[in-house]
Design a protein around this nucleic acid. Sequence first.
RNA 1: GCCGGGGUGGCGGAAUUGGUAGACGCAGGGGACUCAAAAUCCCCCGGGAGGCGACUCCCAUGCGAGUUCGAGUCUCGCCCUCGGCACCA
Length: 825
Amino acid sequence: MSAATTPSVTGAGMPLPDAYDPQGVEEKWQARWRSRGTNATDVAEGPAKFYALMMFPYPSAEGLHVGNLFAFTGNDIFARFHRMRGRTVFEPLGFDAFGIHSENFALKVGVHPSELIPRNIANFRRQLERAGLMVDWRYAVNTTDPGYYRWTQWVFLELYNRGLAYRKKAAVNWCPFDKTVLANEQVINGECERCGSKVEQRFLEQWFFAISKFAPRLLANLEWLDWSETTKTAQRNWIGKSEGAEIRFVAGGGVAEPGTAITVFTTRPDTIFGATYLVLAPEHPLADALTTEAQRPAAERYREQTADQDLVSRRIGSREKTGVFTGSYVTNPATGGQIPVWIADYVLMDYGTGAIMAVPGHDERDFAFAQTFGLPVVQVVAPDGDALSPDPPLAAYTGPGRLVRSGAFDGLTIDEGKQRIVEWLAGHGSATPVENYRIHDWCISRQRYWGPPIPIIYCDRCGPVPVPTADLPVLLPFIADFKPDDSGVSPLARHEEWYSVPCPKCSGPARRETDVSDTFLDSAWYFLRYPSAHRDDTAFDAVLTRRWLPVDSYIGGNEHAVLHLLYARFVTMVLHDAGLLDFEEPFTRFRAHGHIVRDGAKMSKSKGNIVNPDAYIAEWGADAFRTYLMFLGPFEQGGDFRDASISGPRRFLDRLWSAVIASTTTGQPDDGVLRELHRTIRKVTEDIPRLSYNTAIAALMAYMNVLRAGERRPHRAETEPVVQLVAPFAPHIAEELWERLGHTTSVFDSGWPSFDAALAADRTVTVAVQVNGKLRGTVVVAPDAAEEDVFAAAAAEPAIAKYITTPPRKRIYVPGRLMNLVIGG
RNA sequence: GCCGGGGUGGCGGAAUUGGUAGACGCAGGGGACUCAAAAUCCCCCGGGAGGCGACUCCCAUGCGAGUUCGAGUCUCGCCCUCGGCACCA
């Protein structure tokens, strides 16, 4: 903007010049919204509540990202639209500010997170307000506020009291240089992403939530949730249901106690006649007992070796099969034969039973292992029960077929075989049909500083004791040196005056749990908090919760499709079972938004292609920037950010401004323009609920072209409804124009224009005429023209008639759209 | 390797879900206004061939087949690309 355009006239009440000045308009309306309380929701009453939730941001030091703004704007449009349609809309926002990300950043810049985070939040909030979101900031939440995490701790205790929080030893990634636990995604090729040290595996006592118990419900409810299909698919895959059987293999000779049985999980019980060996995970509890003296040195060496490896490189490292024979044998309950028991790291302790029956004839991994160690391969399924060639086979056969070499079961299909064989084995007490789930229990312990302390106290006499609710929050103490050390325990463990406390039960000497909880716990319940954010006597008020939840519309990134959304569903389900909520699914509707990229690449600091919204908003205005972001592409797919293209949406707003300012009230509105207006109303009204914002904006632009065609002066009846249609996208300019049209109340309380189908209807339609599928011309007819009339009109058109060399053999007519004439043989 | 998006003009993207491919915007070209420039306004703008001409014809939605009167859209087989997951028995 050139400085010469306007004198600086801002502030409520002062008149603005007649040229569109976004900075002035936006400043004026943001001030007025604040003073009038336009964006404040009455959480207690109002008709037809609509809870428009967006995933809350992590307030990074770099400030608001265009990606955040893209998502928030999409939600804001949806929320404003529903408000104009008469709903009582609640659009809250907050900050997800705990976690390793903040902590690492604080360590890097040498500023304590308790100082850094409020600063970042203030900056974020300034940017968000500048963007013109309809957020009711009175209900903002901040996960690092003791008034919030007090209730996060309360949620933990609700789970604990219901037996859903428990402690067990688990392997974690440990960086010996940074002296910290690493998440799987921080381990790159077995090395720490920050310092490159080789990551080790440590076994630490960790807190878990028993989410796997809820797997069947979490899966079943996906059937009826109105969520993006891609998100539901991701959740189904993550939950990973598989049907199969657990089969017991009893140990024979060797060292095992007589009668020792290994239970395996398999989805292919039909192939049991081809099970030629068994494999235990190295951590399997029976691995030691089944190892003979002769095999012990080799087996122990192997188990140490796998224990040394970090979790990630063991999972994604080489697929070369390694393993060691235990020296023991078990009986195959189908064949009665003795088969060897091996230990190998391709079997994972945390899936199924940590033991498998290996069928190298029909499983690629087992086949590779059998090849490496010279174990027998037996084919028991053949395509249509045919030839067994070559024998032994050159590869595992995993396709369909019929059973062979399976005794009485020969000739059955795979599905029949599964059922019949499990029934038969079950009769002997050696098999049980089971459903297995891939999903693991949720490990919530973090050996870190920047999180809510887990509210448990360890007493020598009483064991683990939950902190009494009245004593919450367990405040996170200020520690200047919060850097993790070599001990593998949280920095809080170094703060003795904090962790030494009397036992709440017996008052004897006791110690606090020094781990903090995962940030995913903070975000697993924040949507319950918003309506009650002003209440410090309860996590969520029963009446307010009944009024506002479940969430009507949730918008967020698909990168949280699995963990966050699953954890939030799980916590909601638990609180429902506890009688605290009367619904068990928190988000009725969820839509995943796309991502903004630049030059085809994800924006990242290292690529130096981050877009800071501040500069764009300063140059073009928030309204133009919002409209531009939404015009980039389909909201659910994202788009490519190009600086140059912003001028388009800005020009659109300029034209809207001058069209409205120039509107006349004399004379009659133009019929053709009114028809386009009603079509535009219909289009925008249909597009917004589909989040098809880009096409809604395109329709508005197209209407502006019609409105201004021939440099005519528009009639007020032709412009006034457009101000309402534009309002969700460009709220400030809409308010200003609405006021200039003489209204004294907010455009957001003015309702939504309705369209008149009769006015929108065409008087004539253009029908495409094809001959043999090729377009040869068009005819203009009445919308209800009979097929014969259309044909007559087409035949009268010379450009078409010249192709109609013989009477059409066939005639296809799509009323009002197209006629295809099939000529010749 | 598996799962899920996506491939349409110079660019971002439309296409009522099988019915005139390229809406809308950007960039570009030409013109008006101006001493000039910016801004603004008007016109043109997928490729090729023909015509002085309003025009005419052909080709064209990643590639190759198929279904259909008709395919960007459906089916099969490939290629490329962006996400996510990783030996899940």
